[in-house]
Design a protein around this nucleic acid. Structure first.
Length: 659
DNA sequence: AGCACGCCGACT
DNA sequence: GTCGGCGTGCTC
């Protein structure tokens, strides 16, 4: 017997292998995962065809033997699901299996890993719900019971207790012997949720599955899935691709987060894949957020998605929001701290209350420039300036390249080097100088290596051992600090002018998330929003007005500019080591696309080619082209007409791109 | 993806 | 004459 195997190796041609006698009893089938030799390596592949004997033309090579047939967790919908996402991302199914590679590889020894020994008391299963929460849970339970595909958006203002609803639904799903996929947009959140949920679920049903878990811990999950036990799996990207036969509910928390899209190609978006999975498995999916995405809210209007609202805070009250211009020099205590913010911080210190200072410094950041020749220290491999870090080093956010801070200008040898922009480190120094007696800490999560100190900072802040915490996006989500009565946003409009259709959406969501850290258990609290320019969005920066004011305005803007959710958008990215080559390829690709659209009379807009803001990463140049249409299927037809053209650059397809 | 093969430039 | 750059193409 022979099998045709698609290799996990970006080897485009499937190859024939012989199934030796001792493996025949395993009844190899199409879509089975097998381990086969290739040259001197052993690699994983998927069976795509089976023959009793090979014809003469197929047998031109001496076929090698299959080494093993891999035991996968049983999952009757898995093959169909993988085929659907392969069609959505216009790539081969094998790419998705590559993400699960470490579980498929030879080392079978780990498969019989011993059961974890559980320590600690049995978890307390009681969940206390408000009437508002209880009513929502009862509605959602019905779709879990009935096993039907249903999308629900849970719009719960910050501090309204969305987690309590998740908990109740998790209990219910487990009681039906079904599993829950619980997804959050970053590892730090996955860790803190696991801690929180461990108080009401035993370690036998609660599993984390993400990059900060060891391989042994992940193998443990694999083992549990093979055994088909009903479990809760918490993660970011990977869990949505696991074969789980008994999924009963998928929960996407912070569903607005752009982080759900992976950074490397194919740029899988966990939320989109989860929607496809829920549909393929006929299970309900719950999308929770204090600031639901425009796309999800629009689906409530047009696609019969359900919308549930938690409009009251569990404890505490909503903060008072104050807008302050940063441009008036006379009104500043320091360059980045307005008088209003200074007075407010001073007031909280006197009252022994806590302050969060938020600085969003993605992209433009803290760099070194020469004042005599205006040279900026840049990365040699990426098209970005190097960022100033502690201990006199400069490093690149994209490739990690690090160098010592120069004392002379590299270009003109002048000594007139200045640090420009604002960074959390610099802000910390300013705050320490302004408030020498305050206990100040910084919580930015640049490297995963710093996770320990980051957690320690979070804990100290929660316990009240700190007065002021300075941080970036990582402090915007999830955490509950009861003693915070002041949130200062240093530079609110920093991201408003990013050239992407949903730039303001992401900026507003982030600002509301961080503003929501204030007043979790106090009757009063303030948010001071500092900005460089006047912006009408900032005027209505109140989460209670999110749907009634901001969303309505933003939706109208999208309609007028022909962007999602009114049109479907796909990003094509070309990459090559030579900039001239990628530029030529992009021009030719646009011509080919325009030609096909004209000949076949398709209703598709072709935007670009554009040189992206960061056009070189690790010495690879990039160009982007956007395809826009009412119909995703028409975009696919158009893409298929050009994807296999011969060109030096590699071409990548990203549906529903998130800036 | 690796790894081998192969065709041109630099060097003992 | 040989060493080694990496461009091209194959892997059952």
């Amino acid at each position: 017997m022979y099998v045709l195997v698609n290799l996990i190796h970006r080897c485009r041609k499937p190859l024939w292998y012989h199934v030796p006698l001792h493996l025949r009893e395993r009844h190899v089938a199409i879509d089975d995962v097998v381990i086969v030799p290739l040259r001197k390596q052993t690699i994983v592949g998927v069976v795509v065809d089976i023959r009793v004997a090979l014809s003469a033309q197929d047998r031109c090579h001496a076929t090698k033997d299959v080494i093993a047939i891999q035991t996968m967790p049983p999952d009757r919908f898995y093959a169909v699901f993988i085929k659907k996402i392969a069609a959505y991302y216009q790539c081969e199914s094998i790419y998705f299996l590559m993400r699960l590679r470490q579980f498929l590889n030879k080392k079978r020894s780990v498969e019989c890993a011993s059961e974890l020994t559980h320590v600690g008391s049995e978890a307390d299963a009681t969940v206390h719900l408000t009437q508002e929460q209880q009513a929502i849970v009862e509605q959602l339970k019905i779709s879990v019971d009935r096993n039907i595909f249903e999308c629900s958006v849970l719009h719960g203002v910050t501090g309204s207790g969305k987690t309590e609803i998740y908990k109740a639904l998790m209990h219910h799903t487990l009681s039906l012997k079904k599993s829950v996929l619980f997804l959050v947009p970053e590892v730090g959140l996955a860790l803190s949720f696991q801690k929180k949920l461990a108080q009401c679920f035993s370690a036998e049903v609660l599993y984390g599955f993400h990059s900060s878990k060891t391989i042994a811990e992940k193998k443990q999950v694999w083992h549990v899935l093979v055994a088909q036990r009903p479990v809760i799996i918490i993660g970011v990207h990977l869990p949505i691709l696991l074969p789980i036969n008994n999924v009963g509910l998928i929960i996407i928390d912070e569903e607005h987060a752009s982080h759900y899209q992976e950074q490397r190609h194919p740029k899988i978006n966990t939320k989109d894949v989860a929607l496809i999975r829920a549909h393929a498995y006929n299970v309900p999916i719950l999308l929770g957020s204090a600031t639901p995405s425009v796309a999800s809210l629009h689906n409530v209007e047009t696609k019969n998605w359900k919308l549930y609202t938690l409009s009251e805070r569990f404890g505490g009250h909503f903060p008072k929001i104050k807008l302050v211009s940063l441009t008036d020099k006379k009104k500043r205590a320091s360059f980045w701290i307005s008088n209003e913010l200074y007075m407010a911080i001073d007031d909280r210190l006197a009252k022994k209350e806590q302050t969060i200072l938020f600085l969003n410094r993605r992209g433009h950041s803290f760099f070194i420039q020469c004042t005599s020749c205006s040279f900026i220290v840049r990365c040699h491999a990426c098209s970005v300036s190097l960022t100033v870090h502690e201990h006199g080093t400069l490093s690149c956010h994209y490739c990690g390249y690090t160098m010592r801070e120069p004392t002379l200008c590299i270009e003109c040898k002048s000594e007139a080097l200045v640090k420009k922009g604002v960074g959390t480190q610099q802000l910390e120094n300013i705050i320490r100088a302004l408030f020498p007696s305050a206990r100040v800490a910084r919580a930015d999560l640049d490297t995963t290596a710093k996770r320990r100190t980051w957690e320690a900072t979070m804990q100290a802040f929660t316990a009240g051992d700190l007065d002021i915490m300075i941080g970036t996006q990582t402090i915007t989500k999830g955490h509950n600090f009861p003693r915070v009565t002041l949130v200062g946003i240093i530079w609110a409009d920093i991201d408003f002018h990013v050239p992407f259709f949903n730039a303001t959406e992401h900026a507003v969501q982030q600002l509301l998330q961080v503003a929501g850290r204030a007043g979790r258990s106090t009757p009063y609290s303030d948010v001071i929003v500092q900005s460089m320019t006047q912006h009408d969005v900032l005027e209505s920066l109140d989460e209670r007005l999110y749907r009634s004011a901001w969303y309505v305005q933003e939706l109208e803007k999208r309609r007028l500019t022909n962007f999602p959710p009114y049109k479907r958008l796909v990003e094509l990215e070309l990459k090559h080591t030579n900039e001239e080559t990628v530029h030529q390829d992009a021009l030719e690709l646009v011509l080919a696309l325009e030609n096909y659209v004209a000949v076949h009379g398709l209703d598709v807009d072709i935007l670009g080619p554009a040189k992206p803001p960061v056009y070189k990463i690790k010495n690879i140049f990039s160009r982007k082209i956007y395809l826009r249409s009412i119909s995703f299927q028409v975009i696919i037809v158009l893409y298929k007409s050009v994807k296999d053209h011969k060109r030096p650059s590699s071409l990548f397809f990203t549906p529903n791109p998130q800036q």
